[in-house]
């Protein structure tokens, strides 16, 4: 019996960890959906947003104010990117835009370090971090922190999914993703759309940065967390907001379960690479991911 409880404990803790990947993946999905650009800088944006937030906290500002200023900075950042980079690259090949975001990423990383320094900043925003024991005799342990992170991610995704599907701006974002020129021709101003979507991605990055930062401390390795978001994207599909969540859950649960139950056969440490192998199989057999938009080809 306790075997089964243990299985669920691993499964749940994996899924909770997965929602944290999802949070990072969300930012990628937003920008990819609205502009067809794979934004390499998303990981750095997570780091930068968290750095700003923690920096203002350390100056003694209250948490809400620090968060608001950090959001304002991310919006300003969206304006800057649109103004200096995207505007000049309209209708270019996706690979060119991708390269541009690599440049943007390097800039932002250096800029962040320049402003806030390279130290590790501990962050505590008051998310409780106790363990709950449930089941008979407390057979199953749940980390409150993980649970809170999952709830926050769930809320964020619901709001974003609704926004994309049922609002005028959301529809325009999807239209721009499909066809830049056609979107222009019906009077959708691309520049505004890009500022909006980069701002939203900046906001998501801030949330992800705060949650990851509370766990790992705000430090430069945060931008590498983004790498974990890649398999999530491949699984869930680059264009699907719910896909980012489900992808995160599968990756999170999958790697924890694999570590416990398959790991011993390989001598352990399977958690590190399991996600990437899973992603590889998806690329082979279902390249659009679980929820991605089918590549439409009419004959």
């Amino acid at each position: 019996m306790s075997e089964l409880w243990f299985f669920f404990e691993v499964l749940l803790s994996g899924m909770f960890a997965g929602t944290m990947y999802s949070l990072v993946a969300l930012g990628f999905v937003l920008i990819f959906k609205a502009s067809g650009v794979f934004n390499f800088a998303q990981g750095t944006m997570v780091l930068f947003a968290a750095l700003c937030f923690v920096g203002f906290l350390e100056m003694g500002l209250p948490m809400v104010v620090a968060a608001l200023i950090a959001i304002a900075i991310m919006v300003a950042w969206a304006f800057t990117v649109e103004r200096l980079v995207l505007r000049h690259l309209v209708n270019q090949e996706p690979i060119i835009l991708f390269m541009a975001t690599i440049g943007v990423s390097f800039f932002l990383e250096g800029f962040g370090e320049f402003i806030w320094g390279g130290d590790v900043h501990p962050l505590n925003v008051g998310i409780p971090d106790d363990a709950w024991f449930v089941g008979p005799d407390g057979a199953m342990m749940i980390q409150q922190f993980d649970l809170s992170a999952a709830v926050i991610a769930g809320l964020l995704v619901t709001v974003l999914a609704l926004f994309f599907h049922y609002t005028r701006i959301g529809r325009a974002l999807r239209a721009v993703a499909d066809d830049h020129q056609a979107a222009l021709s019906v009077g959708i101003p691309l520049n505004q759309i890009w500022v909006i979507v980069w701002s939203v991605a900046g906001f998501v990055a801030l949330v992800a940065g705060i949650i990851w930062g509370s766990r790992l401390g705000v430090q430069f390795s945060l931008s590498i967390v983004a790498l974990k978001a890649l398999p999530v994207l491949i699984l869930g599909g680059f264009t699907s907001v719910p896909g980012a969540i489900v992808g995160g859950l599968i990756i999170g649960a999958g790697e924890k379960l694999a570590e416990i139950y398959i790991g011993p056969f390989f001598g352990g440490a399977i958690e590190e690479w399991f996600a990437y192998v899973l992603a590889m199989f998806f690329l082979l057999f279902r390249p659009q991911g679980l929820f991605g938009e089918r590549i439409i080809e009419r004959v």
Binding site: A177, D178, D179, Q181, A182
Partner: peptide
């Protein structure tokens, strides 16, 4: 536009 250019995923 020429060639319709509908938003195909919408």
């Amino acid at each position: 536009m020429e060639g319709r250019h509908c938003f195909e995923h919408l």
